[in-house]
Computed example of a mutant assay.
Amino acid sequence: MTEEITFCRGGGCTAKLGPDLLSHVLSKIPKGEKDPDLLIGYDSKDDAAVYRISDDTAVVQTLDFFPPMLDDPYLFGQIAAANALSDIYAMGGVVKTALNIVCFPEKMDLNILGKILQGGAEKVIEAGGMLAGGHSIMDADVKYGLSVTGVVHPDHIYGNNQGQPSDMLILTKKLGVGLVCNANRVNLAPEGAMKEAIDSMTLLNRKAAEISHHYEIHACTDVTGFGFLGHLSEMINEQISAEIDSISIPVISGAIHCAEEFLLTAAAQRNRNHVKERVEFASKIPFSMEELLFDPQTSGGLLFAVREDQAGEFLKELKGAGLPAAIVGRLTSKKEKDIYVK
């Protein structure tokens, strides 16, 4: 493997700009005249843009790309594609087409690029979509991702902040990917942890999304670079707070150990700084669990707010499909803090 592909200064979703910086910049961008058919745009904190083209069809658009977080180009391509496709599922949509986004050093072995594109293409096909082209530029480092288009019924969009008091929160993948990948870069990942993280990152959220269409979902987001608490905070509105049961959180094997050994990411600290004033941790919560909840995820799971009386059956169906899903908390009426971790 060439040196460039293995040199990961901030791979995966750890490479995201911090939420504080991003919010500051976006707040200054002119928005132009409001279009009533733009149902969700960048002025919200949702996972993708949604534009209505008819009474029963809206287009869902997203893009996502980043540098490698591991040294296998084929797996990197799969993970980057799965991560980008996830935004369509988080909006309640169905994947239709995708375009490659490629940054690649001119002098690097083109076989590496071929493996990246192969991995990405296979995930698009697995998602039921069609790879329709793309764009590439020369760069000092490798970066890859997708621009993805999907469709959704305008009345069935999963906004991320429409949850209701008493909704149950269901997470469909384990947390800890960022911690494990960071430990792996310095050869300190616990045995088996990286394989479990890779299996999680390459798993599409398609099945979870398809199952969700049978239930009354009030809100949804995918958990990626801003961490579990960062993305959960985007689900909070003026009427609700959230209570999280830390014991119920599904965790990648070895991730807690990585946190205990302070194998932490700068991105997690940015996430902590962004939402710490909105979160209250119970006194029994150890530092390692806090770090897990701030940990940036690459190609993380979906976090659903589902009607309370449907949560049990929804969870049963997710588990029946082989997903490591769990009920991790609930939404409540508004309290002093936005999020309470118990």
Rank of each mutant, 00 (worst) to 15 (best):
L229N: 05
D64G: 10
S23E: 15
A311R: 00
H153E: 03
E196L: 12
E261D: 09
V142Y: 02
L179F: 07
V180R: 02
L303G: 04
A266P: 11
E260I: 05
N271P: 03
L39F: 13
T57V: 15
D141Q: 11
S241E: 12
I198F: 06
L293Q: 02
D295Q: 04
L26R: 09
K207Q: 08
T172W: 07
S246L: 14
M69P: 02
C181L: 14
Y144W: 12
R307H: 14
K28Y: 10
E106L: 13
D56H: 15
N182W: 06
P250K: 10
Q310Y: 02
P165C: 10
N271C: 05
S200M: 07
F294G: 01
E261Y: 01
R206D: 14
S44K: 15
A189V: 05
F228K: 06
G12I: 00
V94E: 10
G129K: 10
P250Y: 13
I40Y: 05
A321T: 08
P105Q: 07
Q118R: 14
E106H: 08
R278A: 14
I252N: 13
T62M: 13
K45P: 11
A311Y: 03
H257W: 12
Y340L: 13
A121W: 05
F262E: 09
E277R: 02
S248P: 07
K31V: 10
R330V: 08
H231I: 01
A98I: 05
D71V: 00
T332H: 11
A255L: 07
G119W: 14
Q297V: 01
E191G: 06
K335N: 15
T202P: 00
M138T: 15
L169S: 10
N161K: 10
D46G: 11
C220G: 12
T332P: 01
A259E: 01
I5G: 02
E126V: 02
L318A: 03
I244W: 05
G159R: 11
V180Y: 00
P250W: 14
E191K: 06
G230L: 01
E238C: 15
V50P: 15
D155C: 07
